[in-house]
Design a protein around this nucleic acid. Sequence first.
DNA 1: TAGAATCCCTGTAGCTACTACAAGGTCAAG
DNA 2: CTTGACCTTGTAGTAGCTACAGGGATTCTA
Lengths: 131, 131
Amino acid sequence: MNLKIGELAARTGCQAETIRYYERRGLLDAPTRSGGNYRLYGARHVDRLTFIRRCRGLDMSLDEVQSLLAFQDHPEQPCCGVNDLLDQHIGEIQRKMSELQSLQDELLRLRARCQSTGRVRECEILRDLVS
Amino acid sequence: MNLKIGELAARTGCQAETIRYYERRGLLDAPTRSGGNYRLYGARHVDRLTFIRRCRGLDMSLDEVQSLLAFQDHPEQPCCGVNDLLDQHIGEIQRKMSELQSLQDELLRLRARCQSTGRVRECEILRDLVS
DNA sequence: TAGAATCCCTGTAGCTACTACAAGGTCAAG
DNA sequence: CTTGACCTTGTAGTAGCTACAGGGATTCTA
């Protein structure tokens, strides 16, 4: 294996600087180094990084990802913690969505107040926003 | 009028530190000062800050708010720019919502893979996240 | 009128999850 | 042997605040 950071980056679709950042943050453990002090990654790192990127793609925070990684490192534990974390995350997304829905409603209502023919002076949108 | 920053904060539901931050950012212009160097705000500031907070409540960025404030300061301009900004913002919210919807779908699919009885070792959720 | 409590001031550093340098070292190709 | 692509560390920037520290002003109470 023995990938350099750029190769790992290409393989996972993650920038090299992001990989170094994950290492600093403690999500990815430090790989071995080559003679010239280059990071050398193995298959285990590819898996971990893939996992992290998948979770991030699902909008999880790095703290959440770190929790899931901790579960992976203790395979004998019951897995209900994983489910709890996911349920909580699903709840958060739910909340965000309904919040955005209210925003959208209000924005459309606001937008309907102006037919874009006049001057700023008479614009009902701006007037509406102060009150 | 002549409100101190804490009074303006209480009146608008905005923290004093946030108000100072808006001043630094150039959204709220610097008020006069008292003898003891306290900021003293007038009715105009109350209106501006209310406007800003309303916009922020609609999830607009400070840059967007600043654009709207610029429109307010040029009341003779045609107001179609205001409409454009709002339409664009509505579009963004729309995009965010459909993105969250896909996330939600995928999270629910993922969640359905585990019935929380086993150990982490066999957890299909974690397995799914690596591949 | 003294002292305490509560405000206010400036400036700086922290938060998330990166991203973008600068200044330099390593390595492979020509 | 030089060029260019890659790698290294460290630092600073992004958005929109928030949280101090260390000090001054004002106001309330005894």
